[in-house]
């Protein structure tokens, strides 16, 4: 019964998002001028973030998953840090690292790169908070590959690159996809770090969650429509992930 209480508590707010508005309201909300730029920006930035994560995170996870070294375990812990750090802290840390007056500020200014308040800042914030989700899932997936399969492939004359692309990646595929989906969802929902590090400007740094927050102050309908949209996307991701996780357990 206590479990049911918690379940109700988790489900009721989501139901409330849907039943307190009508589809006409949502359509009107989606037509609000704040919506379209935010949707486009969220799509572009999260795709970029995911690209960066997959490109840089996959080799890192490969090493973490296959290495027995002490250093690998230490790195694994460090990589988890963004999960437990509050997003606002992440935003401040990013600002103090990459901002104009930040640790790397002089270096970046020398290269004429200005990150704070730019779309790049949005992507960096997303990569920072989403990275652990992808790296963790990919590490587990790589660690689960049977060493013998890789050895056999190599003795049969496959080059290391071929082993990676033809054997290891297909075997780890499910874990990689699940990690990428979770990381993408986290990047899409990123709010605190973005607000602090990238600011809030329609079309440049105002992603969907920031638009929800901003719209709430002028047009609750628009905020609710955007919220419904984000929940639907989240539901799709969870449903997409569920059967795969079931198969893993077997």
């Amino acid at each position: 019964m206590l479990g049911g209480g918690l379940l109700a508590f988790l489900v009721i707010p989501v139901i409330a998002l849907f039943v307190t508005g009508s589809p006409t309201d949502w359509l009107a909300g989606l037509r609000h001028p704040i919506t379209a730029p935010a949707m486009l920006l969220s799509l572009v930035t999260t795709v970029l973030s995911l690209g960066v994560l997959v490109a840089f995170g996959t080799p890192l996870a490969w090493w973490l998953g296959r290495s027995e070294a002490r250093a690998a375990r230490l790195v694994e812990t460090v990589v988890q840090l963004p999960i437990v750090v509050p997003p606002a802290v992440a935003g401040l840390a990013l600002l103090l690292a990459f901002g104009r007056r930040g640790l790397l500020g002089p270096l970046l200014q020398g290269l004429n790169i200005d990150i704070a308040f730019s779309t790049i800042a949005v992507v960096l914030a997303q990569v920072f908070v989403a990275a652990p989700f992808y790296i963790q899932a990919a590490t587990t997936a790589f660690a689960g590959i049977d060493e013998n399969l890789l050895v056999v492939a190599r003795t049969l004359g496959a080059r290391p690159a071929t082993v990676l692309f033809r054997v290891a990646l297909p075997l780890a595929r499910r874990g990689l996809i699940a990690g990428a989906a979770l990381a993408w969802a986290r990047a899409l929902g990123e709010f605190g770090a973005t607000l602090m590090f990238a600011g809030n400007l329609s079309g440049r740094t105002q992603t969907l969650p920031l638009a929800v927050y901003t719209a709430l102050e002028s047009d609750v309908r628009a905020a609710q429509a955007l919220a419904v949209l984000l929940v639907v996307i989240a539901l799709v991701i969870i449903i997409f992930l569920r059967p795969r996780r079931g198969r893993h357990r077997r």
Binding site: G99, A116, F117, A198, N200, L201, E217
Partner: peptide, 21 residues
């Protein structure tokens, strides 16, 4: 030249104090 529209006045102050704006 607006780089960001902040949600309260103290956030505007913070961005200038930090030297970002």
């Amino acid at each position: 030249n607006v780089a960001s529209r902040e949600l309260n006045v103290r956030q505007v102050l913070a961005k200038v104090t930090l030297g970002e704006a």
